Amino acid sequence: MQNSHSGVNQLGGVFVNGRPLPDSTRQKIVELAHSGARPCDISRILQVSNGCVSKILGRYYETGSIRPRAIGGSKPRVATPEVVSKIAQYKRECPSIFAWEIRDRLLSEGVCTNDNIPSVSSINRVLRNLASEKQQMGADGMYDKLRMLNGQTGSWGTRPGWYPGTSVPGQPTQDGCQQQEGGGENTNSISSNGEDSDEAQMRLQLKRKLQRNRTSFTQEQIEALEKEFERTHYPDVFARERLAAKIDLPEARIQVWFSNRRAKWRREEKLRNQRRQASNTPSHIPISSSFSTSVYQPIPQPTTPVSSFTSGSMLGRTDTALTNTYSALPPMPSFTMANNLPMQPPVPSQTSSYSCMLPTSPSVNGRSYDTYTPPHMQTHMNSQPMGTSGTTSTGLISPGVSVPVQVPGSEPDMSQYWPRLQ
């Protein structure tokens, strides 16, 4: 039975679970980093996980050691009161100082060594604690504590007292930064006198190289990059290397530039699409467009005044059976039934097929058609009795279509119309 579990990581490298990497692998990681390889490249070359490479390099940059820390136990506290007071002093002298600059000053002034120097995250935590204590304490208590930490007896009751030896409130920041720059020169002199001055200088240079600022491109470089971006948004590694040799930039910087440029292009394309949609959409909808001609068919113009009344309900007709019959029939052209047409008796099958359309009241044959006459024609229609054979009435077949029909004066039988409509 094995005491430890061995495995293979996602890159194909072998590791022992819970145990640190061998010293030979750690040394190779540092050597590759000094030669300029990126952590992701080191991870692929040595088949070590990216997190492990970053952790080893980060500890090497901070402490200069590649040895693993002790497994188990607690780390001794490195942010001692003396170190905290120095950090507060540096922050007062130059409020814009960075944590890694404070760390360098602690090393250069001999406050800490490589073994007990606090990390950048520890210094940031100390600065946050100082800021929170400043908010919790009152103004007087804060000034007393700062005077105690600074070891001075001057008056701290006013704002300019934060910067000793100065009279203009805006000047101390520059003086403090100048003092810090002077301390940086002392850093070089002190570290050069040490035993491991060369190694420390190499480590600091490598650290500065990794902690780079934003790349500033010249106009020629920007023009070359934009020209390549117009050709393709995704250049391959050969195109990037050719462009890197042409404009004297690292291939990694060119790759990052193209990634950022593609993101910018997507944002601009989104804005262009929004403007295009806004320009195509009308600002207001016309009133006429809300009524579609496919839904509402136009009603033909009436030929006679009587045809303006298109349904039985508008003429005072309360018989719903006839109203439904007229509205359900398709529109037909106007025609006239003459008196000489043969009077065919209704076929029983045809009569039964339209039995649902006729009223059940037996008085329908005896009703006159003056009910369908509009009010303004009552006088004219009353002067001509319906009993004469020459009287013409208008029957409504569908809305908007008038059918003048000659009705025999002897017997106005409704059943004569249905064979004609089939």
Rank of each mutant, 00 (worst) to 15 (best):
Q2L: 12
N3T: 11
N3C: 08
S4H: 11
S4R: 15
S4E: 12
H5G: 13
H5M: 09
H5Q: 11
H5N: 11
G7I: 07
V8D: 05
V8L: 07
V8H: 06
N9E: 04
Q10C: 07
Q10F: 04
L11S: 04
G12Y: 03
G13L: 01
G13I: 00
F15P: 03
V16F: 15
N17A: 15
N17G: 05
N17F: 15
N17W: 15
N17H: 15
G18D: 01
P20I: 02
P20A: 05
L21S: 04
P22A: 06
D23I: 13
S24A: 13
S24P: 10
S24G: 10
T25I: 07
T25E: 06
T25Q: 08
T25M: 07
R26F: 00
Q27F: 10
Q27W: 11
Q27E: 10
Q27V: 13
K28P: 02
K28A: 09
K28L: 08
I29Q: 00
I29W: 01
I29R: 01
V30F: 02
V30P: 02
E31N: 11
L32K: 03
L32M: 12
L32I: 04
A33V: 06
S35V: 13
A37D: 04
A37G: 04
R38A: 05
R38Q: 04
R38N: 03
C40Q: 04
C40T: 09
I42K: 00
I42F: 01
S43G: 06
S43C: 06
R44E: 06
I45M: 14
L46V: 09
L46T: 11
Q47M: 08
Q47W: 00
V48N: 04
N50P: 15
G51K: 04
G51N: 01
C52R: 00
C52F: 00
C52I: 00
C52A: 14
C52T: 10
V53I: 09
L57G: 04
R59K: 06
R59Q: 05
R59G: 00
R59I: 05
R59F: 05
R59A: 04
Y60G: 01
Y60H: 03
Y60P: 00
Y61W: 07
Y61S: 07
E62N: 06
E62S: 14
T63E: 08
T63Q: 03
G64M: 03
G64R: 04
G64F: 03
S65M: 07
S65I: 05
S65G: 04
I66C: 07
I66E: 02
I66H: 07
R67V: 09
R67F: 07
R69K: 14
R69P: 01
R69C: 06
R69T: 05
I71H: 13
I71D: 01
G72I: 03
G73S: 03
S74K: 06
K75G: 02
K75M: 05
K75N: 04
P76D: 02
R77T: 06
R77W: 05
V78M: 02
V78P: 03
V78I: 06
V78N: 00
V78S: 01
T80S: 05
T80L: 07
P81E: 09
P81G: 11
V83W: 00
V83Q: 01
V83K: 06
V83C: 08
V84F: 02
V84S: 06
V84D: 00
S85I: 08
K86C: 14
K86D: 00
K86M: 10
K86G: 08
K86Y: 12
I87K: 01
I87A: 05
A88S: 10
A88P: 05
Q89W: 09
Y90G: 03
Y90A: 10
Y90C: 12
K91P: 01
K91G: 15
K91A: 05
K91H: 01
K91T: 02
K91L: 01
K91S: 04
R92C: 15
E93Y: 09
C94M: 12
P95M: 11
P95Y: 11
S96I: 01
S96A: 15
I97L: 10
I97D: 08
W100D: 05
W100Y: 08
E101W: 06
E101H: 07
E101F: 06
I102L: 11
R103Q: 08
R103T: 05
D104G: 10
R105Q: 12
L106M: 07
L106H: 00
L106V: 04
L107W: 10
S108G: 14
S108M: 13
E109A: 12
G110A: 09
G110L: 12
G110Q: 14
V111L: 09
V111F: 06
V111M: 09
C112H: 06
C112F: 05
N114F: 10
D115E: 12
D115L: 13
D115P: 13
D115T: 15
N116P: 06
N116C: 11
N116S: 08
I117F: 11
P118H: 00
V120Q: 05
S121T: 04
S121G: 04
S121P: 06
S122Q: 00
I123G: 00
I123S: 01
I123V: 15
N124G: 06
R125V: 05
R125G: 06
R125S: 05
V126R: 04
V126N: 06
V126T: 09
L127Q: 07
L127W: 15
L127V: 14
L130K: 15
A131W: 07
A131P: 08
A131Y: 08
A131Q: 10
S132G: 09
S132L: 10
E133H: 11
E133C: 10
K134S: 10
Q135Y: 10
Q136R: 13
Q136Y: 09
M137A: 14
M137R: 14
M137Y: 13
M137F: 12
G138I: 13
A139T: 14
A139H: 12
D140F: 11
D140N: 11
G141I: 13
G141A: 10
Y143E: 14
Y143I: 11
D144E: 12
D144N: 10
D144T: 10
D144S: 13
K145N: 10
L146D: 14
L146I: 14
R147S: 12
R147G: 11
M148T: 15
M148K: 13
M148V: 14
L149N: 06
L149D: 15
N150K: 13
